[in-house]
């Protein structure tokens, strides 16, 4: 996938915290059962206001497929790599389970998968997108919170959304240059 830069744009105002994305991801990617085992998640933000005027937001997250990857940098055996299209990968047979990447990732996006014997994380469903389908979380989201696409294509929906709306990234101060953008 040369000349592409995959990214995701999320409109958190649409998120209803149904966690269908997490379920879809677990089923699609054979993520083992258990609370700790997940490639994506929905963060319940703090409750705003005072009763009866209350508000709450939900922020879905997953591997940010950063432009400056702390996980790849620290991996002693180069098990973590990055494709030209930006997807951060883990070569299972090279992972020694030192969990350094897990301590280095500021998003807690990685977990150790006992079934495959390696650290596991979101791949943007590479096996789907390379044959023209959407990531499972994007396809399943009932309120269309997530938009996936190629940022190098100025006409893609992700490029248009980012041009049109102000947006933020998570933990910008870490300098990781994440590629999950949240509309404000």
């Amino acid at each position: 996938m040369n000349n592409k830069r995959f990214a995701m744009v999320l409109d958190t105002r649409k998120c209803i915290d149904c966690k269908a994305c997490t379920v879809a991801c677990k089923a699609e990617n054979h993520v083992p059962l258990g609370r700790e085992n997940h490639r994506n998640w929905v963060t319940e933000e703090h409750l705003r206001g005072k009763f009866p005027l209350l508000g709450q937001s939900y922020t879905p997250g997953q591997c940010m497929h950063c432009g400056n990857t702390p996980c790849k940098r620290v991996c002693p055996t180069s098990a973590t790599g990055q494709n030209q299209d930006g997807i951060v990968t883990v070569e299972e047979h090279k992972c020694i389970g030192c969990k350094y990447c897990m301590t280095a990732c500021p998003y807690d996006a990685r977990y150790y998968n006992e079934e495959i014997g390696a650290v596991d994380k979101c791949t943007f469903c590479a096996h789907r997108i390379y044959i023209g389908r959407l990531p499972a979380c994007v396809e399943t989201c009932p309120t269309k919170v997530r938009v996936f696409g190629d940022l190098n294509d100025p006409n893609s929906e992700v490029s248009r959304l980012l041009a049109k709306y102000p947006h933020r990234v998570i933990k910008e101060e870490m300098g990781t240059k994440p590629y999950l953008f949240y509309l404000i």
């Binding site: 002693p76 090279k94 020694i96």
Partner: peptide, 25 residues
């Protein structure tokens, strides 16, 4: 470490010179 034997193999076959743990070993 989950795979000490893999470690012995891949620190040599597939080293990452940027990794402090590679340097540690």
């Amino acid at each position: 470490i989950n795979h000490p034997i893999r470690m012995a193999i891949y620190v040599i076959l597939s080293p990452n010179f940027e990794s402090p743990i590679w340097w540690m070993g």
